[in-house]
Design a protein around this nucleic acid. Structure first.
Length: 781
DNA sequence: CAGTGAGCGAGCTTCCGCTTGACTT
């Protein structure tokens, strides 16, 4: 037998981690990685033999075949193999799969764990190996099988009852549910107006005057009440009734986990969760930060010490305060450290602007977490009126010692931000008489709950213990890809509000102002299909899409991990009732169409209804008296909802397309398409933009639009081929290109676009088609 | 890119959690 070439082979999950660890271990160790899970359940028959006590069928994932082949070779050449995957359920399972797939004998394998990548932690791990924890592996297996059974039994049910290609799962369906329910709360919300009264008092403290702004503690329901109050103010005496100073403190937030990093990067840097993860991955691979998929707020002793050194060096002893944080997340498995800089003395790193910005955020948050509290003094002043019981209140806050605020303050999701106590209160004494400069009563409306952003959805999922750091970003992509949710920008609506202003003792000035309300950017909106699927799933499977389901499952998985529960027993008691419900639903539920009959068109007597059709939500006109007549259809606009649309709105949809006149002997038709309102003339389309409304636009208005577009096109055109008019050479952003029918073809740099013949172009077009096919075939693999 | 919705019915879709590439533009 050939002698082993490698003494010790260590397998970790991530290649970047392998590189770091190899530096800590001597030359007797080779460190390599398996890149996550290497095997998964087969797709055939759901990968589980239910009859045979839930026996799983595993296969090596296609993209991992080469990894496994390489690891097998290395392990054959090694005396000892150290399985060093993460210290959690999934990590334990990865080690077990490695042992199985690499066919490692017990005496050749050691299992080690460490949850921080520091030299002492690694050396300690090597000195304290253990064997694979079968209970923990079984807990993972139960988790995996349960998710497979839920997903692969419910999705096909949706294909039959709602629409093909839909999906359902323990995690994604709850994400969709949250968004659907929030949207319905917003729909049901009725804003209420109140009059908020704010006064500016003149304070003269000898050396110049300042202004003190105070808000009335009472809000008025009606304009009449607000006016009455202002009227009284004219004759009132104002005086300081009480002056209260209280010391206060602020403490820093814990260092980042995946979820909090995604939230802050979204708020402070406007990154999507995917972008945050991509940039963080780069920082991790370049050795700048610790692992970015973690649910732990823990810092290693080494990190605590080096952050302390950095703080004392940069800010001084009084700014240092060593803190240990405890996770609040109930699903946390804490296999890693919190996300922190690898080296606290590096305030910045080289890289792209995004990388530098995210690094800076991570550095600040981690440093601040080890800094002193900020000490504040909060002042509350109450100002009384001589002729009314209401009080004006002013709040001020002064920072006595900035502490951690010197580097970092966490942002919030609060969009109102109205009653922030800030600024300095000028010196005042009890009983001091005050004069107002102005008093303003402004009509303010209560706001509906905010729609979720990607990041606030992640926050909510984490609170519910649903999903894991590695899946937050992919889950959000999935629900969008399946067409349940879309991230959108919506313009708001105008709304009038009253402003009543009293200046001095003059007449009260009444003004009506306009504000934009309900404008939203980057928020998650549910589509109609999400409403239908959500209601269907909740009707037939209320206990699975219950917000508590995952938490209950987690408890049972913990029991499996501790050896108190047998994994097949757990699956048995879940699966059989579940499967019966699936069968029952197949037989007893109607196909979901979301149909609503809205009423009858007064003019024609036809029935007006809406429903989900093959290409999306449609409105339908049906002549109930004539069975032969085909119904008319019109697609709903993206902003319209099946469950909310009114009969008037539905009837409006049939007013388009509208023939508005003739131009050059051809009809001009106005309509709304996928890209907004347009007019069609001679089979060509001209976008109307926001300027014209397709319901009212006249042919006189449309003709200049057509002519303008023609002029632009002519400027763009270099050449049209006589042989075939659909072949054109056009000027594009990156130089000339060929438009062959509907396809855009790139012209290679070494060709002179103006000299191309028709034959050259046909050839170029054919080549491009071939390339496209090859690419498609490759991506299918 | 810009308006579809008939009917037949083969063959396909889908889960959650671990990890990165190897492709273009």
């Amino acid at each position: 037998m050939a002698k082993a070439k490698i003494k010790n082979l260590v397998i970790v999950e991530s290649p970047a981690k392998a590189k770091t660890i190899e530096k800590f271990l001597g030359k007797d160790f080779k460190v390599t990685s398996c890149n996550g899970h290497i095997r998964d359940l087969e797709k055939k028959n759901n990968g589980v033999d239910i009859e045979n006590n839930f026996s799983p069928f595993y296969k090596i994932s296609d993209e991992k075949k080469s990894v496994v082949k390489e690891l097998k070779k290395l392990s054959k050449d090694s005396e000892l193999v150290w399985l060093a995957s993460d210290e959690d359920r999934e990590g334990e399972a990865i080690s077990w799969h490695l042992k199985e797939a690499l066919e490692l004998k017990n005496d050749k394998v050691k299992r080690i764990i460490f949850n921080e990548i520091t030299k002492p932690a690694i050396l300690h791990a090597i000195e304290n190996p253990r064997s694979i924890d079968d209970n923990l592996v079984e807990a993972q297996q139960a988790r995996r099988i349960l998710d497979r059974l839920v997903g692969f039994e419910l999705s096909p049910l949706l294909w039959r009852k709602v629409k093909p290609s839909l999906s359902a799962g323990r995690v994604q369906s709850v994400a969709v549910r949250l968004i659907v329910e929030r949207e319905r709360e917003i729909d049901a919300f009725k804003p209420e107006a109140q009059y908020r009264v704010v006064a500016d008092f003149k304070i003269d403290n000898g050396n110049g005057s300042t202004t003190l702004t105070a808000e009335l503690s009472t809000k008025f329901k009606t304009k009449k009440e607000a006016l009455e109050f202002l009227e009284k103010c004219k004759d009132a005496d104002f005086s300081v009734e009480s002056l209260e100073k209280k010391p206060a403190k602020k403490s820093p937030a814990a260092p980042f986990t995946t979820s909090t990093l995604q939230q802050e990067a979204s708020r402070k840097l406007r990154f999507s969760v995917i972008k945050t993860m991509m940039v963080a991955q780069k920082l991790y691979e370049n050795g700048h930060i610790t692992y970015m998929r973690t649910d732990s707020v823990n810092l290693s002793d080494l990190a605590l010490q080096s952050s302390k050194d950095a703080i004392i060096k940069d800010y001084g002893e009084e700014y240092s305060h060593t803190r240990k944080y405890k996770t609040k997340s109930r699903s946390a498995q804490e296999a890693h450290e919190a996300i922190r800089p690898s080296y606290f003395d590096k305030e910045t790193v080289d890289g792209t602007a995004d990388e530098r910005a995210l690094y800076e955020l991570i550095w600040k948050r981690a440093i601040a977490s080890q800094m002193s509290d900020a000490k504040l003094e909060r002042t509350t002043v109450k100002i009384a009126l001589s002729n009314r019981d209401e009080k004006f209140v002013a709040k001020g806050e002064v920072i006595l010692f900035d502490g951690f605020l010197k580097v970092y303050l966490e942002s919030t999701d609060d969009e109102n931000g109205e009653n922030g106590a800030d600024g300095i209160i000028p010196p005042l004494r009890n009983g001091q008489k005050l004069d107002y400069k102005s008093i303003t009563a402004t009509q303010r409306y209560t706001r509906p709950p905010a729609r979720y952003t990607e990041a606030s959805l992640v926050k909510k999922l984490e609170e519910l213990g649903i999903g894991r750091p590695s899946t937050y970003a992919p889950t959000i992509s999935t629900v969008q890809k399946r067409g349940y949710v879309s991230k959108e920008e919506r313009p708001g609506k105008e709304r009038k509000y009253d402003v009543l202003t009293l200046v001095g003792k003059k007449e009260i000035n009444q003004e009506v102002k306009t504000e934009i309300t309900g404008a939203d950017k980057g928020k998650l909106y549910p589509l109609d299909i999400a409403m239908l699927v959500n209601d269907f799933l909740l009707e037939y499977f209320p206990d699975i899409f219950n917000y508590e389901f995952t938490a209950e499952i987690e408890k049972e998985l913990d029991d499996i991990a501790s050896g108190e529960l047998q994994w097949q027993n757990m699956l048995n008691s879940f699966y059989h009732p579940f499967h019966d419900k699936v069968e029952h639903t197949v037989e007893n539920s109607e196909r979901v169409s979301g149909e609503r009959i809205l009423g009858f068109d007064k003019k024609t007597g036809k029935q007006v209804s809406v429903r989900m059709a093959r290409f999306g939500p449609v409105a339908q006109l049906t002549d109930l008296n004539d069975e032969e007549a085909k119904p008319e259809y019109a697609g709903l606009r993206p902003t319209q909802k099946l469950e909310k649309i009114t009969i008037e709105e539905a009837l409006d949809l049939f007013k388009l397309p509208r023939t508005i006149g003739e131009f050059e002997g051809e009809e001009v038709v106005a309509a709304i398409g996928r890209f907004g309102p347009y007019v069609r003339h001679n089979n060509k389309f001209y976008s109307l933009g926001k300027e014209y409304d397709p319901y009212t636009v006249t042919v006189e208005e449309a003709i200049p639009v057509i002519e303008e577009k023609r002029k632009k096109d002519a400027e763009k055109t270099i050449k049209i081929f006589e042989e075939n008019e659909s072949y054109k050479i056009l000027k594009g952003r990156w130089g000339p290109y060929l438009k062959a029918g509907r396809m855009n073809v790139r012209i290679p740099k070494d060709m002179d676009a103006s000299k191309l013949t028709y034959e050259d172009c046909v050839k170029l077009a054919e080549e491009t088609v071939e390339k496209g096919k090859a690419k498609k075939a490759a991506s299918k693999k």
